[in-house]
């Protein structure tokens, strides 16, 4: 009997261990090893921190690094500001069929691939696109307007892509808030704003934090949206990694970049958790 349970435990654990070790642990260890070696001759490598020195020594890399972080944080904030009223409406105001219909409406865009969705935005925003045409037709613009290839276009794409990942945890936490608690807030003299600040937001905090973490990480690691909507001038850190690996065949520097990105996202998520007083277990559990 004891033997049996033990075997079962091992068998159940095996897929998880394989997943963790093959797809996460081993590649990262290898990546780290690659990032700390320096080519000194043909097929000859030394251990050194030269790649990291290159990163810190080149303003363009640092600038792109900081820009990616700030833009991702901004995308997270904007996503939250749009998703919160939507989630509140779905969770607390809409009832029955309307509720499920609205939730489905948030899900539908994810039935097409990210690539197609991004092309959709390009059709809308490009010089000969729908918005440009509309503005000219209304007489608001003289000639064609180019709305693609700038930071605003990237932001639109990032927010659009991330919306669902903010809406789902928010709807879940808001639904668990008893309506009577909100009513009690009003009954005891609160107005809309104070009920939101003292009751709804504190209750939704775990959902806000987990949604924000997911959206932030998705934005930080996004490659497609910044590349397609941002064009040449809008650099994103993942593009730098891509170009080191694929264009320049400089795996060592690319690996170092990858590690810096991992460090950055860990640092910002940690900071976010500290700031809100949540723990990772509470948020993800």
């Amino acid at each position: 009997m004891r033997e049996g349970t033990r075997l079962g435990f091992i068998l159940l654990l095996t897929p998880l261990l394989l997943w963790l070790s093959l797809l996460i642990l081993i590649p990262h260890v290898d990546m780290f090893l690659v990032s700390i070696r320096e080519r000194v001759g043909v097929g000859k490598y030394d251990i050194s921190l030269a790649n990291y020195r290159t990163f810190w020594g080149e303003p363009l890399y640092l600038w792109t690094f900081a820009r990616t972080a700030v833009m991702s944080i901004l995308a997270t904030i904007i996503t939250f500001l749009i998703a919160f009223p939507v989630s509140y409406y779905i969770a607390k105001i809409a009832r029955g069929r309307l509720q499920s219909a609205l939730f489905l409406a948030c899900l539908i865009p994810f039935w097409v691939s990210e690539l197609v969705r991004t092309f959709g935005w390009m059709i809308l925003l490009r010089e000969t696109g729908v918005f440009s045409g509309l503005l000219q037709w209304l007489g608001l613009a003289e000639g064609p307007v180019e709305m693609l290839y700038n930071d605003a276009a990237i932001m639109v794409g990032l927010v659009y892509t991330s919306m669902l990942f903010m809406v789902v945890p928010l709807v879940t936490t808001l639904e668990s808030l008893d309506d009577a608690v909100i009513e009690a807030g009003y009954d005891l003299g609160g107005n809309g704003w104070s009920v939101l600040r003292e009751i709804v937001l504190p209750h939704a905090k775990p959902g806000i934090v987990s949604g924000s973490i997911v959206v932030f990480m998705l934005s930080l690691g996004n490659y497609l949206t910044p590349t397609m909507l941002g064009g040449k001038d809008s650099l994103w850190f993942t593009e730098l990694i891509y170009s080191q690996f694929i264009v320049r065949f400089n795996w060592e520097l690319g690996a170092a970049f990858g590690f810096m990105l991992l460090l950055l996202s860990s640092l910002i998520v940690w900071g976010m958790l500290r700031l809100t007083g949540e723990t990772l277990e509470e948020t993800m559990g």
Partner: peptide, 13 residues
């Protein structure tokens, strides 16, 4: 003021 059926104390406070 009202005492609610399930009391509706604010769990976050």
């Amino acid at each position: 003021n009202m005492v609610f059926q399930h009391l509706a104390l604010f769990p976050m406070m």
